[in-house]
Design a protein around this nucleic acid. Structure first.
Length: 348
DNA sequence: TTGTAAATAT
DNA sequence: TATATTTACA
């Protein structure tokens, strides 16, 4: 009788503990959710653990009711084990939170972090955000399920205190793996092609923010942008490339103002056999011309004005550029600052 | 370091 | 084929 009572008590205690574990695990799961794409296995692991313990609670076995059974031991052991596995993550993630606080975050994070509470959003550390910036497209990731296990390790490693270059290490690993798998289009084997950088929404927003701070796309330089963005692993080249795309994009009048069609052509005048935008012709400051354009398209307020439009821009540019002549210079897609810089020596 | 355009990947 | 990103070069 007494025995069974104490067994009941034990079971209840265990139940309570399990509930706590489940709670903790769910907490972890919410955090891992942020990495859903990159850490599918990790997420799965935690989910399974939660389910296991839920099951445990909902289905009291004989062992559960019969004192300190092996299950009970297992439970506590396992719970402890699993939690031990995840607790450091929690700790280090929170401890790391402060480290990159200075990173200026954009106004509001519209990026919906897969069902994250507001609290958790706030709690999400900067490095974590930075990692998230490198979110890869599903298509890519679906092919990398195998790899994700290793990535998990990398991230955990990073979380555990490899503070400097945490994301970089992950990326390097990925790149290395990619190289091993054999870059099909690679040039001969010596020239390893860099891992393709994916400019997520969030990252682009950061880019825009930085651009705004620096005074616009035609004033800001890649290095400045990169430094201000403070994004782990982001290189000058990547920023430069993105900036190039952005400039091309913003130079081009959008579909939004179809009746400005004429003014677009009117802005270009022939100077010394070369087509030059009137703005930069009449204005000494090329950047100013750039800013004017920005004002029209408002890229700093919005994201890319229109992707399809941009696409058309590039192809148009391509076909035009194939001519390699005057027309190329007339291209509104040319950066004004570049134009002044590069074309001048050629003019003289 | 920067800007541009070609090359390459997706 | 279109678009995005990397690379080479001035």
């Amino acid at each position: 009788m007494i025995n069974s009572l104490s067994n009941m008590k034990n079971y209840n205690e265990k139940r309570v503990r399990c509930c706590e574990y489940i709670k903790a695990l769910e907490e972890e799961r919410r955090k891992i959710n942020v990495f859903q794409r990159e850490l599918p296995l990790c997420l799965e692991l935690v989910t399974q653990a939660i389910e296991t313990y839920k099951k445990e609670i909902s289905e009291p076995t004989m062992e559960n009711l019969c004192g300190q059974s092996e299950c009970s031991e297992q439970t506590t052991g396992e719970c402890g084990g699993i939690l031990d596995l995840f607790r450091p993550i929690k700790h280090s993630s929170t401890s790391l939170e402060g480290e990159e606080e200075e990173v200026d975050v954009d106004d509001e994070h519209e990026s919906n972090e897969t069902g994250l509470d507001c609290d958790d959003k706030n709690m999400k550390s900067e490095w974590l955000k930075s990692v998230q910036l490198w979110n890869q497209p599903d298509s890519v990731l679906s092919n990398k399920l195998e790899r994700s296990q290793q990535e998990t390790e990398t991230v955990v490693e990073a979380i555990n205190g490899n503070d400097n270059g945490t994301t970089i290490s992950g990326r390097q690993k990925m790149e290395a793996e990619k190289d091993i798998s054999g870059g099909s289009g690679g040039s001969g084997g010596i020239g390893r092609r860099k891992h393709r950088r994916c400019w997520s929404h969030e990252l682009h927003r950061r880019f825009l923010n930085t651009l705004k701070q620096l005074g616009g796309p035609h004033v800001a330089t890649p290095k400045q942008i990169r430094e201000l963005m403070k994004v782990d692993g982001l290189t000058n080249d990547e920023v430069k490339s993105h900036l190039q795309k952005y400039r091309l994009h913003t130079r081009r009048p959008g579909q939004t103002i179809p009746n400005k069609r004429d003014s677009q052509t009117q802005h270009f005048v022939v100077v010394g056999g070369i087509w030059v935008p009137q703005a930069s012709h009449s204005t000494a400051n090329a950047a100013t011309a750039g800013e004017t354009t920005i004002g029209i398209y408002g890229p700093l307020q919005s994201e890319w004005p229109s992707q399809s439009n941009f696409g058309r821009t590039i192809s148009e540019e391509r076909s035009r550029c194939s001519n390699k002549g005057i027309i190329r210079c007339s291209s509104p897609a040319m950066s004004s600052s570049t134009r002044t810089k590069t074309k001048d020596p050629k003019l003289s």
